[in-house]
């Protein structure tokens, strides 16, 4: 199960809405081993595409080093789908490389309702988990 604060939950949705129709992506860092997402880090989608995302490599190095220095890890890795459901695509699954992370997908295909779902992706296997928004 992913437990996430209302504030961070809203920030992910706001980022996805702001970048629509391109896919938005980012990380929420937290203390290593804590499983608690705390620090919101929106990332540039280097592809600027409605169907694909990739972290900018220079920005990723900077952010990953920062997390290392602060004894953090990527607790949540999020991205949006802008025309399809919030379920990991084959592409998402084949590139997933952080087995300890919660992969959050949001779908902005509906203008009003935003789908927000979370998954574990490990060894090409997807397991959906429940999301608890802490008030």
């Amino acid at each position: 199960m992913l437990t996430i604060s209302r504030d961070l939950y809203e920030k992910i949705i706001a980022h996805a809405r702001a970048d629509h129709p391109d896919e938005a992506c980012g990380v929420i860092a937290g203390p290593a081993g804590s499983d608690r997402p705390q620090r919101f880090i929106p990332m540039v989608n280097a592809e600027r595409s409605p169907t694909f995302y990739r972290f900018d490599s220079a920005e990723q190095l900077k952010v990953w080093r920062e997390m290392d220095d602060r004894d953090e890890e990527p607790v949540v890795i999020y991205h949006s789908h802008t025309a399809t459901q919030a379920y990991p695509s084959r592409t998402d699954i084949s590139y997933a490389s952080e087995p300890q992370a919660h992969y959050v997908l949001v779908s902005t295909r509906d203008e009003q309702d935003t789908e927000f779902r979370s998954y574990r992706i490990s060894d090409a296997e997807v397991t959906e988990e429940s999301v608890q928004v802490a008030e």
Partner: peptide
């Protein structure tokens, strides 16, 4: 430094 790219997308390849 080696880092796996963080990438994906809605179109299945």
């Amino acid at each position: 430094t080696v880092l796996p790219a963080v990438a994906g997308g809605s179109v299945s390849g």
